[in-house]
C-alpha cells in the first residue's frame, strides 16, 4: 500500500503538490488523473524518494522509500520513457538495475521477452521508438517482480495495440494482488483501465473514489442519434419521458435519460430508420476537465457541451 499524508512540494513560489493525502490499495488499479502540470509526476517522484517533500510524507507499507531494503523487489517504477542512456543497450540498461540488488541476469532476458523486446535486446536504445522506450520502462518496472507498481503515463506514445497490451497487463498484475498506481491525463483511458480514481488539479486532491461512482456522479447518459425520421423519433422519445436536443452537427440529435439499447429497441418497435446510435461520454471528460480546472469546485456539474469537435471528446 502507498500512503501519502498531507504531502506538500513547493518550488520557490509555486506549489506543485498542495497538502495531498490519499492511499493506494493493493489488488486494484488506481488511476492517478490530472491534466499536464497538475502535479502527478512530482507526487510520484516524492513517493520514490527522488525529490524531498517540503512537508508531509509518502510511505510504502509504512516505510519511506529510502528505507526499503531492496526497492526493486518491492516497487517497480516507470517514470519517463526516456530515463535511459541512449548509448547503452536495452539488456545492459536492465542489467545494471538488476545488479544493484542481486536480481539474476536471466531475469533481464525474461522481462525483455515479456515486453516483446528480445529481438532488440542488444541494440542501443537511442534508436528505439517512443513505444519501444515505454516497453523497456515497463520491463524495468517488472524486473524485481515487485508487489507495487508506480507507472507515470505508461501508454504515452504507444500504438492502439500497445495501449491494449498495457491495459491487459495492468489488469492481470492487479488480479495477482499487486498494488498498481498509474497516472494519465486522459479520462477516457482511465475510465476503461482503472478500478479506482484519484484526481488532482493544481496539486490538490479533487476526487478519490471508485471509477463507477465517478462515472455515475459525473456523466450524463446521453446518446447521439442520426435518423432521417427525426420528428417521429422525437415524438416517440417524448412519450417515454426522454429528453431530445438538437445539435449543431447537421441533423444529429442527443437523447438523454436513456441508453443506446433502449433507443434502438424503441426505433425498431416503431419501424424507424437509424443511421447512427452512439453512446456519449463527452460529459465525463468535461466533468473531469472542469474538476481539475476549478480547484475546490468538486461538486460542480458543468453544463453539457454537445456537438463539440467530434462529439466524443
Amino acid at each position: 500500500m502507498i500512503e501519502v499524508r498531507d504531502l506538500v512540494k513547493r518550488y520557490g513560489d509555486t506549489t506543485a503538490v498542495d497538502h495531498l493525502s490519499f492511499a493506494v490499495e493493493p489488488g486494484r488499479i488506481t488511476g492517478f488523473l490530472g491534466p499536464n502540470g497538475a502535479g502527478k509526476s512530482t507526487t510520484m517522484r516524492l513517493i520514490l524518494g527522488l525529490d524531498r517533500p517540503s512537508s508531509g510524507s509518502a510511505l510504502i507499507d509504512g516505510l519511506p522509500y529510502r528505507d526499503l531494503r531492496d526497492p526493486l523487489r518491492y516497487v517497480g517504477a516507470l517514470l519517463e520513457a526516456r530515463a535511459v542512456h541512449g548509448g547503452r543497450s536495452a539488456f545492459n540498461h536492465l542489467l545494471y538495475l538488476a545488479q544493484t540488488q542481486g536480481v539474476p541476469k536471466r531475469r533481464v532476458s525474461e522481462v525483455l521477452e515479456l515486453v516483446g523486446l528480445s529481438g532488440v535486446a542488444k541494440k542501443r536504445t537511442k534508436g528505439f521508438s517512443l513505444g519501444m522506450g515505454q516497453r523497456l520502462g515497463i520491463a524495468a518496472a517488472l524486473l524485481g517482480d515487485p508487489k507495487i507498481l508506480i507507472l507515470d503515463e505508461p501508454v504515452n506514445g504507444l500504438d492502439p495495440e500497445g495501449v491494449l497490451w498495457v491495459r491487459q497487463l495492468l489488469k492481470a498484475l492487479a488480479g495477482e494482488g499487486r498494488t498498481i498506481f498509474v497516472s494519465s491525463h486522459l479520462m477516457n483511458e482511465m475510465a476503461v483501465t482503472a478500478d479506482h480514481l484519484i484526481v488532482i488539479g493544481r496539486g490538490k486532491l479533487q476526487a478519490d473514489m471508485p471509477v463507477g461512482q465517478f462515472i455515475a456522479q459525473f456523466s450524463d447518459t446521453a446518446v447521439l442519434v442520426r435518423t432521417p425520421e427525426a420528428e417521429a423519433l422525437r415524438a416517440a422519445a417524448g412519450e417515454r419521458g426522454w429528453t431530445v436536443a438538437d445539435t449543431d452537427l447537421d441533423g444529429a440529435l442527443i437523447v438523454t435519460g436513456s441508453t443506446a439499447p433502449e433507443i434502438g429497441e424503441l426505433a425498431a418497435a416503431r419501424g424507424l430508420v437509424l443511421h447512427e446510435l452512439t453512446p456519449q461520454r463527452a460529459s465525463l471528460e468535461e466533468a473531469y476537465m472542469e474538476l481539475t480546472r476549478e480547484t475546490g469546485e468538486f461538486a460542480h456539474r458543468p453544463a453539457p457541451a454537445w456537438g463539440g469537435a467530434d462529439g466524443r471528446a
Binding site: 545494471y96 545488479q99 491487459q168
Partner: peptide, 30 residues
C-alpha cells in the same frame, strides 16, 4: 487473459538489502 509471469522463473528470495556491493557491480556495468 495474460498470466503475466507465465514462463518467468520465480526470483529467489531477496537476500540482504541493496547495498554497496551491488552498487559497485552496477556502476561497473554502466
Amino acid at each position: 487473459k495474460v498470466p503475466v509471469f507465465a514462463g518467468l522463473a520465480p526470483l529467489p528470495e531477496a537476500k540482504g538489502r541493496a547495498g554497496f556491493g551491488g552498487a559497485l557491480r552496477s556502476e561497473w556495468t554502466k
